[in-house]
């Protein structure tokens, strides 16, 4: 099905309390900044589970959602860049799950691809193996990782077309393609929305069948670059 054009506020209004939300980006690069801003300013959805590499930064991006007390649980590989998220996790103010970055990415990919989990050697026999089944494969300890799926995925692409096909730029790609595939409702924020056939079919990174809502980006990285990204 083709994506529906929508404003950021309309799209965000579809997120209910208790939703699990994936948010693309490596730090702020490739993060859907317009959608995050709408979620912070125009939604009251709370008890959210956020799956994102970094859980934002102190007072910026998803960091604002944390300050509003709307995050129940965060799944990430690196909380350190947001000291407030570290504090919230360590004091039990939020639940958290720390995953190696590649395991996080693959769990999201698996979620979107209908895979019931996978065995990885990464993290085996470390503290992060707790709660994961271990199995020896070819003599090497592996641990079982479950797939990750979301009620809503918020992604960013530099280019898109009116059907919802997406194309990413440089290192702004990161978690976005996998997250676009793993959301029951995927909302894509796009900087440049082209007519259908605006780029060659083989240049599409995320085919439109993954994308449900298409939102014009109005907030760029340059707009939000304050003290260090």
């Amino acid at each position: 099905m083709a994506a529906t054009r929508s404003t950021a506020i309309e799209a965000i209004a579809e997120i209910p309390d208790g939703a699990t939300i994936m948010v693309g980006g490596f730090g702020l690069v490739g993060a859907p900044l317009t959608l995050i801003d709408a979620l912070v300013e125009h939604s009251t959805a709370t008890d959210l589970t956020i799956i994102s590499n970094n859980t934002g930064e102190a007072g910026r991006g998803l960091g604002l959602l944390l300050r509003q007390g709307r995050i129940k649980k965060a799944i990430a590989s690196f909380f350190t860049s947001n000291p407030e998220a570290v504090e919230a996790a360590m004091t039990g103010a939020i639940d958290y799950e720390l995953l190696p970055q590649g395991t996080l990415a693959e769990a999201i990919r698996a979620g979107g691809a209908g895979i019931g989990g996978f065995y990885t050697p990464v993290g085996a026999r470390t503290e992060l193996a707790k709660g994961h089944e271990e199995r020896i494969i070819d003599g090497v300890p592996h641990i079982l990782q479950a797939p990750l799926r979301a009620d809503v995925s918020l992604v960013y692409a530099t280019w898109g077309d009116e059907l919802g096909n997406l194309r990413y730029r440089r290192t702004a790609q990161n978690f976005n393609p996998a997250m676009a595939s793993a959301g029951a409702l995927t909302i894509a924020e796009v900087a440049e929305i082209r007519p259908v056939d605006g780029f060659a079919p083989e240049d599409v990174h995320t085919p439109h069948l993954y994308v449900n809502r298409l939102v014009q980006s109005t907030l760029s990285l340059a707009d939000v670059q304050g003290a260090g990204a």
Partner: peptide, 24 residues
């Protein structure tokens, strides 16, 4: 280029023949 960073989130450039891809 704000959309071109390394894993330390610092800006980098592209070498000839560079390839960009997703996290997975």
């Amino acid at each position: 280029d704000l959309e071109l960073i390394d894993a330390g989130k610092k800006p980098v450039t592209l070498m000839p023949g560079a390839a960009a891809f997703d996290s997975a």
